[in-house]
């Protein structure tokens, strides 16, 4: 396991630095719906479970419930380990990550940010012994690793996140249709994307919101998109469909653009809130660490 962790961390460390990962270990994904997990252990369930199936140990991290410390191991090894039980991790965390060409623009910044965020969420979920499915989508699903559980899957997750190229057009509706079909059980669905879909995000999100899943829409936009600094006569070319639109940058145009960005984000937020989903705007100028450790905890996605 140690060897496996080593390789995992080396690969994963391309995205997340070890210090950050250590802090992520303390976090876990929280579901407000507190579903019918056959719980016992880390997660309280409405339904009291009967048997406790041991699944794994993990090192103790400050803040863990002392009740689950395996004192036997402590007695033998003089080290604190936590007992993890299978029934307790019935929470499925489904990450739907945008891998279309648009996130690769205007520079790789947004892509990196999205991948980092996905990796951090994946790490937290895996470390928390949740059932994790990571789906990368472009024009439909372009890469998926389903039903991972435990740290052993970290390398696979890292491989998926790191190696799936950013290209092609996005068909959010198709991706959502496929993703919604593939999910099982209950849990949390986190969509990390810029949500700049020409055909609209509404139908896709609508497919995801139903059922036993709690939906988080994390809209990742870079400062270039929020506060563009352009000048002159430009021909803007869409990274996905090569659609172009000619603009002459003017104060008025920029004013309208900003107004549109705000309106678009607010529209998405409204859409989510009205359907019980949570909307998160992730500006890439805010670091992933800050985002995860502070903001996501504040909205109680993580605890």
């Amino acid at each position: 396991m140690a060897a496996a962790m080593g390789t995992t961390q080396r690969k994963l460390s391309d995205l997340l630095d070890p210090g950050f990962m250590a802090r992520l270990d303390a976090l876990d994904v929280l579901s407000h719906k507190v579903l019918k997990g056959r719980l016992q252990g880390e997660r309280r369930s409405k339904r009291r479970g009967q048997s406790v199936e041991f699944a794994d140990h993990r090192p103790y991290v400050a803040g863990d419930d002392l009740r689950f410390v395996d004192w036997n191991i402590y007695g033998r090894l003089d080290q604190l380990f936590l007992k993890l039980f299978l029934e307790e991790q019935d929470l499925t965390v489904h990450l739907l990550v945008d891998a279309s060409a648009s996130v690769g623009m205007p520079d790789r910044e947004k892509n990196t940010y999205i991948r980092k965020l996905a990796a951090a969420m994946g790490y937290i979920s895996l470390a928390g012994n949740n059932r994790v499915t990571i789906t990368l989508f472009g024009d439909g699903i372009v890469g998926q690793v389903a039903n991972m559980r435990g740290r052993a899957y970290l390398p696979r997750m890292a491989e998926l996140i790191l190696n799936t190229p950013t290209e092609g057009t996005s068909d959010f509706d198709k991706a959502c249709r496929q993703a919604a079909g593939s999910r099982v059980g209950t849990g949390v669905m986190i969509v990390v994307s810029d949500f700049l879909f020409k055909e609209g995000y509404e139908s896709g999100l609508r497919r995801l919101i139903g059922g036993q899943y709690e939906l988080y829409a994390m809209q990742t936009l870079c400062p270039q998109e929020l506060e563009p600094e352009l000048a002159g006569d430009l021909k803007l070319v869409d990274a996905e469909d090569a659609d172009s639109s000619e603009i002459t940058v003017s104060a008025a145009l920029l004013k309208y653009y900003k107004r549109n960005v705000t309106a678009y984000c607010n529209g998405l937020k409204d859409f989510c809130v009205r359907r019980g989903a949570t909307y998160v705007l992730a500006n890439t100028s805010t670091s992933v660490e800050l985002m995860v450790l502070n903001y996501l905890r504040r909205i109680q996605l993580l605890r």
């Binding site: 996130v103 810029d194 020409k198 803007l236 653009y257």
Partner: peptide, 11 residues
């Protein structure tokens, strides 16, 4: 016009 690649021309 100078060509400028953007993530989306939507907005």
């Amino acid at each position: 016009r100078t060509e400028q690649l953007v993530s989306s021309t939507l907005l």
